[in-house]
């Protein structure tokens, strides 16, 4: 374990992940400082989701290190549950528990993992649900809600544990365009409030607006990273330019 002191909340060095012969992530380096909003962009299959899953220790990495707050969490001796107490994750397909009400979805981890009492957990959850306009749905089951509402519930569920770092995996990719806005509004509010986030996204305009840093992934590598203004207007790499030309119809 390298003992170099770092100010970054999350530090990724030389990360490698393979599935059989297929190299999904290759020599990925990434720094995430507190209050950063890091947007991962790139075409499907470029490794964005896999990177997020590695950061949450849902996948074993094949090489490289992930350091959270100065502690290496890619160490096999680290208990992943301790890490996940501090890191929240939201998935593309919401992954809410259909057998639990919205409120129970939100209070499960605070009560069972973080040891909050039912009353404490519910107060906190209701507060957040109210803040995100979901208070009236607290007693319903997730399948009764629209996609946008379900994804907002998933965000609330992740926030209920007060994570230091929030990982968002293409959370608007499964939503209708008109529902994308309501979810992004929340993410924007979180960004303004200083929440540290790493998000994979296809919403370029949104990435440009909220990101403090944008990373372009191509074939498992971070080909280019930088502040959104630089990366979107004056990319250094040809591949970044090609990708942006494809996804931003108006970009020159």
């Amino acid at each position: 374990m390298s003992a170099i002191p770092s100010t970054a909340l999350l530090q990724v060095r030389g990360l490698r992940k393979t599935y059989g012969d297929r190299v999904v992530l290759d020599s990925v380096d990434l720094d995430v400082h507190a209050h950063d909003v890091v947007c991962l962009i790139g075409s499907s299959g470029s490794g964005k989701s896999t990177l997020l899953r590695c950061l949450d220790l849902l996948e074993d990495v094949d090489d490289g290190t992930i350091t959270l707050d100065g502690h290496e969490i890619s160490d096999p001796l680290v208990d992943p549950r301790e890490v996940r107490k501090r890191v929240g994750m939201v998935f593309q397909a919401y992954n809410l528990f259909p057998h639990l009400s919205v409120l129970d979805n939100c209070t499960l981890a605070p009560r069972r993992v973080h040891g909050l009492s039912k009353a404490e957990a519910e107060t906190r959850a209701l507060e957040l649900l109210d803040q995100f306009g979901l208070a009236e749905h607290a007693r319903k089951h997730p399948d009764r809600l629209s996609g946008g509402q379900q994804q907002r519930v998933a965000l609330v569920r992740a926030l209920c544990t007060r994570p230091e770092l929030l990982l968002l995996d293409e959370i608007t990719a499964a939503l209708d365009p008109e529902l994308v806005g309501e979810v992004l509004t929340i993410v924007r509010d979180l960004a303004v409030a200083g929440t540290t986030m790493v998000l994979a996204t296809h919403e370029m305009a949104f990435a440009r607006e909220v990101a403090t840093k944008v990373c372009f992934l191509h074939q498992g590598r971070i080909l280019e990273q930088g502040p959104p203004d630089q990366l979107f207007t004056d990319p250094r790499e040809d591949r970044t330019r090609q990708f942006l030309a494809r996804v931003l119809p108006s970009a020159g």
């Binding site: 374990m1 030389g14 190299v23 290759d26 094949d62 090489d63 490289g64 160490d75 096999p76 590598r221």
Partner: peptide, 16 residues
């Protein structure tokens, strides 16, 4: 693209 370069596990990975 230099992705094809042969990869050898790092010391840390071997330790792990």
């Amino acid at each position: 693209a230099s992705t094809g370069a042969a990869w050898t596990p790092s010391l840390r990975e071997l330790e792990r």
